[in-house]
Write a protein that binds this DNA or RNA. Structure first.
Length: 1007
RNA sequence: GGGCUCGUAGCUUAGUCUGGUUGGAGCGCUCGGCUGAUAACCGAGAGGUCCGGAGUUCAAAUCUCCGCGAGCCCA
């Protein structure tokens, strides 16, 4: 009886994977794999929620397989690893997709279309590709619970987010201010940085040097400033100089027409921009200029203090004059520095990018700012404050949708005061392990050091509504933290809509906008701030909001902080930050303890794969051609997980050929012979120490491998673990152990040695299967089902097993070293043969190894291997080269400094005869294969040849028959058929001899 | 413009932290061999400005600085 199912020599991985997926589905293997670990120590994972309004990209697949690897590994290591899927549903990216569909171009048009209908569209759009996501997730083998995911637009989720915002508000960390944002005046919307990055173009802008006259000076003294955006001069509030740089007062020799001699102040390092002759009359530090007042350029109303020289570290000397024109309405740094210095603000531009009536020139009113540059330059000239004018080539952002130049523009915004939490952020970051490590104090740490307040609000539609109500009468603020509180406070709860799916309230706009409160202070009406919040806050709240904390809090407490999260590097300032920011603000604790940052996927040419570049490889074709295991294995072995990875279908196919095929071949070899011999691992038990050196060697290698793999995985050095396994499979197992041990499996009779070989190979395959299960879950499951579950039924899946742990007592480093030396000697011997032009099939008399006594002792027990591999009758080890070893008869090859190998290349009649016999055997084997005979099928052989051939065959007929499974070999002319059975004959040329060989299958088969 | 990371053969990469034999593999290429794991394997060969330059050192792919190129993040 055969204990294993026979396999095809050539694996069909795709079909195999589909069968496994089906099996997992039926047996609920995923669910069971978690349930079986209930009560064990938890390993907490948080899924970074993707947005399903586009197709999954290879990069998404990469993060999914890395997550899967780690979670499967931890489960096998005995942890209880729950995995809740999540969907990110809010935000501008979603709105833009819908806008494209509707053809709308501005907020105004959306409002006309109707916020209710628009948000409904967004809600639908966000799950448009859910099916594709679910399919790809399952197909690649990512085990995650997609039946009860967290969804950021669910009322429960929003309620938790509201709770957290109220916590922040109560601590006085949620405030209203201005933020300078990239803004499209035509679409009347702010753009995310991602969108801005898409639209940079090189353009020529005016480059002008403007003179600002200092007050309270005897002579005409001007600060000389440089700008490429003349229109922002109407918003000028200050001039900034660097406190430490050296500035000069330069007396310009040429008098302007009708004017007096002028003195210009600029950085000494920028003096070469002056076109006229000058004389330096004074040098001073930037510090000394601070506080000087200057005359306003144009008469624009300003609230607060203004028009003084200030100090700022961001001033550089690489371009301009070292004096920077500051307009807080139009620049981020400008805004920040003015805020910090308590300066005023002026905004002479409306939300469409047109000058308002605050500009003291009727001709400019309602003119688009970018169109006004020329006119403004003329005005400056008329006033005599334009020093110099030219043009400047630089990159400037344009709206990727409509092509309008973007304006950096101050908008009213709600902020979370992250700056005040800076030290806590840094302290919590200390508790996090970053992989790779450099991110901790590098990109991420630097970012935290310079953290700015979080601009939380968005003047948009589809998002978590900002839960702040303001009294129209007295300005009192109120922040709502739960649905209960909302209902209580609402004047008329009839305006709250029931959503159709469940009876939860729909907390989105426009319904929530209708909810009006009565002010506790003055009895007036309180209305909600119209904004929604940044969707990054939504996902940053995932650790608690996915459990609806604090309204149902048991799960959260058990799942905080996370042990592990991973996403691509671009999330450093995205999700990795938003998680830490929210968690620090609310719990003052790190939300995750280990974070693995992944590289990006590049195409074959090393260019980042992106939709806009059109170089995205279609994942489904890989699933259908190479399969998920091949894809996974490629991702794991190609490079360290944190580096960018080049990706192409051919690279995956290559990896598959190398590794998966070899693994399959090893497994196929075992199953094939185990079936022939009816080997049953359950019935055999032989202690390792009783097995051969080869067996003990592979077991030692296996246990060393386990140690290294576990070590690497604990450090997320996935590539090292995977590459080590690949080396083991290809070099140690397939190319050495199995190749060397083949003959032990072929022996027909029962023998202890054969049992040892079977048991060893079986044990290695089973352990390897478990070791590989987190990496390539399909093929390992397939192998496990056939060779383990069918025999030892207790664990139904390889993914229920414990991860193999090394048995130190089986690691024999001395044996491993000896084998390595043997392998070196084999290589050297082959080199010698190759040099001498003698093929390996030709037996030779002896090989002499000259080496130290120590080496001899180490390897002499393994000399048989060397004898076989080199096809020599005898192997000798000597301390010094014997006299009999001469240059004429021996080929000499250096192995290492202290070891030399001499191969006897002299041939006698007997050796030549043996060589001939082996050639004949080889030809017959080839013919068996031509007929596609079963490995166990017996044959008859008939031959024809000269006397020498006859003699050789006669002498070695037993050997020939044994090797070729022949019942007999006889001389004779053959043609046509013998005993009615078709005969297969062929004329061969062996060396200079012609030999005719014919074979005929036996009637009776062994099976 | 700033920060971080990366740059080794036609391609994918090891080695870089901790300086020290002749920079090591795999794929591909050329030649030879082997053949019951066979779309596998073994041997030999061609192929390197270790991105460029400078410095430190007895000694630099490795350490330092300055460039160049790529990727990401931020302006």
């Amino acid at each position: 009886m055969a204990y294993f199912r026979s396999e095809a020599q050539k694996a069909n991985f795709v079909q195999l994977e589909e069968e496994i997926l089906n099996g997992w589905d039926i047996e609920k293997t995923f669910e069971q794999s978690i349930a079986r670990r209930e009560g064990c120590e938890k390993f907490v994972f948080v899924e970074g929620p993707p947005t399903a309004n586009g197709l999954p990209h290879p990069g998404h697949i990469l993060t999914r397989v890395v997550k899967d690897l780690v979670l499967r590994y931890k489960t096998m290591r005995g942890f209880y690893v729950e995995r809740k899927a999540g969907w990110d549903t809010h935000g501008l990216p979603v709105e833009i997709e819908v806008e494209k569909e509707l053809g709308t171009n501005s907020k105004h048009e959306i409002e006309e279309y109707g916020i209710e209908k628009f948000n409904q569209k967004c809600k639908e759009s966000v799950f448009r590709y859910e099916k594709e996501w679910v399919n790809a997730t399952k197909r690649v083998g990512f085990w995650i619970d997609m039946d009860s995911p967290y969804i950021t637009s669910d009322s429960g989720y929003i309620e938790s987010v509201w709770w957290s915002l109220k916590e922040i508000w109560r601590r006085g960390l949620l405030y209203k201010g201005h933020k300078v944002v990239p803004y499209c005046p035509r679409c009347e919307t702010t753009l995310s940085s991602h969108e801005v990055a898409q639209g940079y173009e090189n353009v020529e802008d005016p480059s002008i040097y403007v003179k600002f006259r200092l007050k309270q000076e005897q002579e005409s003294v001007f600060m000389l400033a440089w700008t490429t955006t003349p229109w922002t001069l109407f918003g000028n509030i200050a001039l900034a100089v660097h406190p430490e740089h050296t500035y000069v007062k330069a007396k310009v020799k040429v008098k302007p027409e009708g004017g007096e001699e002028e003195i210009l102040i600029l950085a000494e390092a920028r003096l070469d921009i002056l076109e006229d002759e000058y004389e330096i009359i004074e040098r001073l530090r930037g510090k000394e200029l601070e506080g000087k007042e200057y005359e306003q350029l144009f008469d624009v109303p300003v609230e607060g203090k203004s028009h003084t020289v200030i100090n700022a570290d961001f001033v550089t000397l690489e371009e301009g004059t070292g004096v920077v024109h500051i307009a807080p309405a139009f620049g981020e740094d400008d805004y920040e520095v003015c805020r910090a210095k308590g300066l005023g603000f002026s905004q002479p531009v409306d939300s469409k990018g047109l000058f308002t009536s605050e500009v003291p020139f009727p001709s400019l009113e309602d003119v688009f700012v970018k169109d006004a540059d020329k006119h403004i330059i003329e005005l400056l000239e008329q006033r005599g404050v334009l020093y110099k004018e030219s043009t400047y080539l630089h990159s400037y952002p344009f709206c990727w949708r409509c092509g309008s130049p973007l304006l950096y523009y101050a908008r009213e915004s709600w902020f979370i005061g992250m700056k005040s939490l800076r030290d806590k952020l840094l302290a919590n970051n200390e508790k996090i392990n970053w992989y790779p490590e450099h991110l901790k104090y590098g990109r991420f740490g630097n970012f935290l050091e310079n953290i700015a307040d979080w601009a939380l609000s968005r003047e948009r539609f589809w998002g978590t509504p900002l839960n702040i109500w303001i009294c129209e009468e007295c300005g009192a603020e109120c922040c709502v933290g739960s649905i209960e509180e909302l209902k209580e406070r609402a004047k008329s709860s009839s305006s709250l809509q029931e959503s159709d799916a469940n009876s939860d309230l729909d907390l989105h706009r426009p319904y929530i906008d209708e909810v009006v409160f009565r002010c506790d202070e003055c009895g007036g009406e309180m209305r909600r701030v119209k904004d929604v919040i940044d969707c990054w806050y939504d996902s940053g709240a995932a650790p608690f909001a996915q459990w609806h904390y604090p309204y149902e809090n048991e799960e959260f407490k058990r799942n905080f902080p996370a042990n592990f999260i991973t996403e691509a590097i671009d999330q450093t300032r995205g999700w990795f930050y938003s998680l830490l920011a929210v968690s620090t603000a609310i719990f003052d604790a790190p939300p995750y303890l280990n974070v693995l940052s992944l590289g990006h996927i590049l195409d074959e040419k090393g260019v980042k794969m992106s939709k806009s570049k059109g170089n995205v490889v279609d994942i489904t074709s890989i699933f259908n051609n190479e399969g998920a295991d091949a894809l996974r294995w490629y991702f794991f072995t190609a490079c360290p997980p944190w580096e960018d990875i080049r990706f192409s279908e051919s690279a995956i196919a290559e990896r598959q050929k190398k590794f998966l095929n070899t693994l399959w071949n090893s497994y196929f070899f075992f199953v094939t012979y185990a079936t022939i011999d009816e080997f049953n691992p359950k019935e055999k038990s032989i202690a390792i120490e009783k097995r051969s050196a080869m067996d003990r060697w592979i077991m030692s290698r296996l246990n060393s491998l386990m140690k290294e793999v576990i070590g690497s995985l604990e450090r997320f050095e996935i590539h090292l673990a995977a590459r080590r396994i690949e080396e083991f499979v290809v070099n140690d197992l397939s190319n050495w152990y199995i190749r060397r041990s083949r003959r032990r499996f072929w022996i027909a009779e029962e023998s202890i040695d054969k049992d040892c070989a079977y048991l060893t190979l079986y044990e290695v395959l089973v352990a390897l299967c478990k070791l590989l299960a987190p990496f390539v879950p399909f093929i390992t499951e397939h192998i496990y089902q056939n060779i383990v579950r069918s025999i030892f039924g207790e664990l139904e899946s390889v993914h229920f097993c414990d991860y193999p742990s090394p048995d130190e007592s089986l690691i024999d480093t001395e044996l491993e070293d000896s084998m390595e030396l043997i392998s070196k000697l084999v290589e050297a011997g082959r080199r010698a043969r190759s040099n001498a032009g003698i093929k390996i099939r030709q037996p030779l008399k002896e090989v002499v190894v000259v080496c130290s006594k120590g080496k001899k002792e180490k390897v002499s027990s393994l000399a048989g291997i060397l004898k076989d591999e080199l096809n020599v009758r005898e192997v000798k080890f000597e301390d010094v080269k014997p006299k009999s070893v001469t240059m004429e008869n021996y080929k000499q090859v250096e192995v290492d400094e202290a070891t030399t190998l001499f191969l006897d290349i002299s041939l006698d009649k007997r050796l030549i005869e043996e060589g001939l016999v082996r050639d004949i055997v080889r030809r017959i084997q080839g013919m068996r294969k031509d007929l596609d005979l079963d490995y166990t099928e017996k044959i008859w052989i008939v031959y024809e040849g000269d006397e020498e051939v006859k003699e050789a065959i006669n002498r070695f007929s037993d050997y020939i028959c044994e090797e070729t499974l022949a019942g007999g070999i006889e001389e004779g002319k053959t043609s046509g058929s013998v005993e009615g059975k078709q005969i297969y004959g062929k004329k061969w040329k062996i060396g200079k001899k012609e030999v005719y060989l014919a074979i005929k299958p036996f009637q009776i088969r062994k099976h």
